[in-house]
Every structure is written in structure tokens, then in C-alpha cells.
Amino acid sequence: MNVLLVDDDSTFRFIFRKQVEKQNGLEIMHESEHGLAALEYLKSAISESKELPDVIILDINMPIMDGWMFLDDYSKWSKEAGIDIPVCMLSSTINQMDFDKSKTYSSVIDFFSKPFSSEHINRLLSLEV
């Protein structure tokens, strides 16, 4: 399963990489520091007819374009582009409002709270996307 990791925190990205290394089944296809970079990556992948990720792991609190803005833009764009990559939220938030808000986006399939664990990877793999 190929993932696109969108998170501005380099330390977390390191931890994510380490965790993925330990377990089989997940491949990090690309890492983006914020939503805009992720969108640009997806757009260029399509225009260059490259392989697209199976799932997008999305942080919320990011500079330039945070998780919510990304979801707004992605929802619109993905429909036009005719793609349907599921999104999995991954944040250190424990705010119920953030959980509720994520459910309003049809592309969001799950919500993981940091710290990231092997259990999260198992859940991702079981989603059979």
C-alpha cells in the first residue's frame, strides 16, 4: 500500500518512516510538508501519468495550507480530475470538534491520533483500499 504522508513535522516524519520500516505492507511514496505541496505533487503525478498513492495520511496543523484547506481544495479538484484517493487523518489533536469536522468530508475514511503506532498501520492495511 503506497502512502502520501502530509506533515510539516520532520521529527514525526522520521518516526513514521521508522515505524513503516519495521512493519511490512506500507510504502511511503512521497512526503509533503503542507497541503499545497501535496496537491501539487498529486497534480504533477497525474499530468506525468505517474502512479498515484493508495492513501493520503494527512496532518491538520500545518503552515501555508493546513489539513482542512487541503481537504477543501482536494474535494473539489479530485472530482474534476476523476480520482478517488481516500484520506486518513493523523494528528496530535484530541479535540472532538476536529473529529466531527473530519467526518463532513466524504474522502476521509479514518482518524488516527498521535502517537503513531503499529496498530494504526494494521488498521490502514485492513481498510483494503
Partner: peptide, 21 residues
């Protein structure tokens, strides 16, 4: 409170993750 908790939680979860590896 939310932001503070988030901004505190983020480095703490990182520390936990780092410790694990």
C-alpha cells in the same frame, strides 16, 4: 486550551515515538 494541548501533545508524542525507535 486546545491549541496549547495540541502544541504540547505534538512534541510529547514525538518523544514517545522516538523513544520507541
Amino acid at each position: 486550551a486546545h491549541l496549547a494541548s495540541h502544541n504540547l501533545r505534538a512534541p510529547v508524542t514525538n518523544l514517545m515515538g522516538l523513544l520507541e525507535h
